[in-house]
Amino acid sequence: MQPDDVLLQVKGLRKHFPIRKGLFRRGGGTVKAVDGVDLTIKKGETISLVGESGCGKSTTGRSILRLIEPTEGEVLFRSRVFNGGSSETLVDVASLPASKVKQLRREMQIIFQDPYSSLDPRMNVADIVAEPLRVQGVMGRAERRDRVVHLLEAVGLGGDHARRFPHEFSGGQRQRIGIARALALNPRFIVADEPVSALDVSIQAQVVNLLQDLQADFGLTYLFIAHDLSVVRHISNRVAVMYLGRIVEIGDSEALFSRPRHPYTEALLSAVPVPDPGAARTRIRLRGDVPSPSAPPAGCPFHPRCAYAIARCREEVPVLREAGPRQQASCHRIEELTLAGVDAP
């Protein structure tokens, strides 16, 4: 990792889950949930991971934070906590001892999808938001109280909410509480795992705006995990599309949405229902379902569902390679295919 503007670099990340079968829980193979992901995240950007259930996007996000132990690979992060906060040191999150991972939590945080299950119902809001501060032991009691009020105001709640309990809040307000908790330690990097998927449309817009405001105010870098491509386009600088544990396409948001280079991206984009009854769009009907990640197809993992597959796709695994300016895709036929994006011609 050379350039200074890179915050985090993921190299060859893999997470394999063993399938345990039978009395002695042996054999049964492995699910390759994440199967060789490379990703570079720049300071201050929002990069989105998109894909369908089981593609490995959440596992990737959690492996980067060491919320689950990666099987293989490096997660290089420019950390400040180990040098007294002044200068940056490069650490490999994936191989750091557990005690140091705890320190790293000051810089790397997560926002969860479900605002109903991610807050302890028996803790009041002040305790929930102050918990990271207490665990890390970075502030005294009085200081923590002030910090909580400040954080609640930053996410659009009032300091008077501090003594209330999660059940007294709506879904959107609970998500704001979760965001305040993630911000408590003043992190630099936040994994937002489907942060607006469980929210109603009108509330979703409020939370998306809030995330963007906070990014500007606190200089945050986001890894945004989502399946709603309209929200992704709105919020992201760059987008990575995952399929069966691998990134099949990555590029600047504008380029990827207007000119996708991987047939799976094209199909995903065409499947999004547009809120316009007059919209004339051709939809690419994908055949069948996503194959099981425990038995991915030979060759290109997407070939059984791909409308453009040729003999080579059944045999040879394509690698991620240059497909356009700042755009990469793993497809044998990048040069020959002209795929449709979502912008009307």
Binding site: A205, Q206, E254
Partner: peptide, 17 residues
């Protein structure tokens, strides 16, 4: 208005209720 547009023609900031 609060639904972001996938065609990217929307405003920089989402309208909210």
């Amino acid at each position: 208005r609060s639904v972001p547009s996938i065609t990217g023609r929307g405003a920089k900031r989402l309208a909210t209720i």
